[in-house]
Design a binder for these strands. Sequence first.
DNA 1: CATGAATGAGAGTTCATTCAT
DNA 2: GATGAATGAACTCTCATTCAT
Lengths: 194, 194, 194, 194
Amino acid sequence: MGEKSIQKKKYIVETARKVFMEKGFKKVTMKDIVEACDISRGGLYLYFENTSQIFSEVLKLESEETDDVFSKNIDENATAVDILLLFFKEQKKEILKRKDTLTQAIYEFYFENYNLPKKDNVLKKQFDSAVKVIEKLIEIGVENDEIVCDDYEGTARNIMYVLEGLKISAQTTGITPDAVDRELLYILKGLGAE
Amino acid sequence: MGEKSIQKKKYIVETARKVFMEKGFKKVTMKDIVEACDISRGGLYLYFENTSQIFSEVLKLESEETDDVFSKNIDENATAVDILLLFFKEQKKEILKRKDTLTQAIYEFYFENYNLPKKDNVLKKQFDSAVKVIEKLIEIGVENDEIVCDDYEGTARNIMYVLEGLKISAQTTGITPDAVDRELLYILKGLGAE
Amino acid sequence: MGEKSIQKKKYIVETARKVFMEKGFKKVTMKDIVEACDISRGGLYLYFENTSQIFSEVLKLESEETDDVFSKNIDENATAVDILLLFFKEQKKEILKRKDTLTQAIYEFYFENYNLPKKDNVLKKQFDSAVKVIEKLIEIGVENDEIVCDDYEGTARNIMYVLEGLKISAQTTGITPDAVDRELLYILKGLGAE
Amino acid sequence: MGEKSIQKKKYIVETARKVFMEKGFKKVTMKDIVEACDISRGGLYLYFENTSQIFSEVLKLESEETDDVFSKNIDENATAVDILLLFFKEQKKEILKRKDTLTQAIYEFYFENYNLPKKDNVLKKQFDSAVKVIEKLIEIGVENDEIVCDDYEGTARNIMYVLEGLKISAQTTGITPDAVDRELLYILKGLGAE
DNA sequence: CATGAATGAGAGTTCATTCAT
DNA sequence: GATGAATGAACTCTCATTCAT
């Protein structure tokens, strides 16, 4: 595949991403993507066989870009709790978004593809890596007496499950910003922070 | 609508329930249900206009039957922790099921209908009522010195969000029974129980 | 058929009449009539096989009731021109109505049934009888020097065709009250009246 | 849309035209046209959304082709009355046709679409332009002492309404060639011609 | 007579997918 | 590589009509 092809493929994936954000995964048809990309029907088939394949690429792109959620823009002097608060703030924003987000599409996609090998399951990879980072933060926090905790990994995982619970609740039953705050505060209190 | 009609409607809902368990919500067509029920195309439309309407009835049925999750078969001498353990056991079973469950269908349904009035949102209703029961259990547990907790409601809600997180994770990234146990244990430890 | 049956049949025809006025002929289904009459599906079939049969009855009713258009409420001292003016006024009203009228339905019906025996063609019967009356009026008018005309029958028929032309134009291209007046005046002028 | 598409679209319109001539407007389904054109179900939808759209195109075609009704094949030395007679002859043919004509379909179409903007109402456009031409012919006829008339426009319009009346009568109550002749003669007599 | 549940034919419409150009 | 016309399968939905009760 030539350079031009790679560019085009990337263009398709990026455009499709927007479509998935708008409509979720299942509702999106090849036609939707063809139209969004303003390419020919046959043209799309040169690059992708179906929407699953396209969405997989979207996810790959996503994970490349979001790997650095934690590392970006962090003040040199920030404490562990500072960083945790920052992370929570990001998560809150993500939880409350209903439209400009891939959340639903991702869930829908994995409903159909839950048996993908773990290495291809971006959701799992992100979950696990987030757990690791939180674990590390807690460790640092404990060392610096900011945080009280005697099971770093367990706590980190618990936090992530709460966040997952908040996310899915937001998408299905709706949730208010206050309710999110309340849950995040509960976690922080459990850590002896804030 | 006569008695016979009511029976038939119930039959359709129950049959459709199985279809939804197998295929989720979005993938199910009126035709699927027609075939599962072995009735005529037009016949189904006498009772329901679309799959959403049918699924709503399925949910109604569901919530009627599961309202008593907590109350059933509870030993007279059971302690609060006993009951909590029982509840967790039920939840674990529910979390780990992938096929014989409406979980996915429900999520998919509410992805599309998240703005239903709260009274029609079974998910929300069940969540809230579960929170209340857990809260009560904690209260009793604290009174009997089985449990340590200083924020009954917050803790109850936190527990439910973890369970939600586990549920959605199970459906999307997969989860092992051990992993579920680990999370439930973490919660119990936090309550000073077990 | 008992008295009760006759009453019911009449009820159906009268109710269906309203439906036809609203929707024309072709668009109307047996279901529409069942619903308008608030009777059972099977019940309607006891009396009529299809919408054509019902519409035929509507037409029969119609022709019974409208036979006396000319004879009703005519002042003893009215001149031929007076009566003609009255008739034109009625026709104008009929022409300009778009909704509360069977006009369209009748046209649609005869598009499909133009080969009905003349005795069953209400449209033709009404046309012919109107021609006769106009002819008579002209004759009287001429005798009384109100009207100038040397071909009573031809003129009467010509007038009726103009009215038909106005009626169908009103239903298809639309027509203003002024335009109708203009045409009616043109006719009167041709008769040397007004 | 390429040249080939334009050809195909034209082919569809022309084929559909025949279908409309046979069945009128309302009875025609997309399926009828698909079958008449011997194309695929989906294929038709590439070009048209529904039968109304197709019929509109048929009408457009029609009006392009019939604009020149008056101008064609007219002898250099023809008098106004000659041309009028020719026109009447054409009209008579049109009036008497029951099958090979769009008349019914057009009426049915405008029953449903009477509120189209005047510019899209072919019926109205043709009526108005015919009135203008007749008016002109009368004027010329009067100048050449062939015709007697003191209200050119009024008479032209009156003639057209009679023709409309004859046309709709032919479609609904049926009409004999003689009856048409009789009406046309009546008009000519009124013009002092023949 | 009357009911209304049930059937199944048939119309509309949308898309994934192919293929000649 | 790219296009976009074409196909046909699959779904949705509506009614005329029948028939057991």
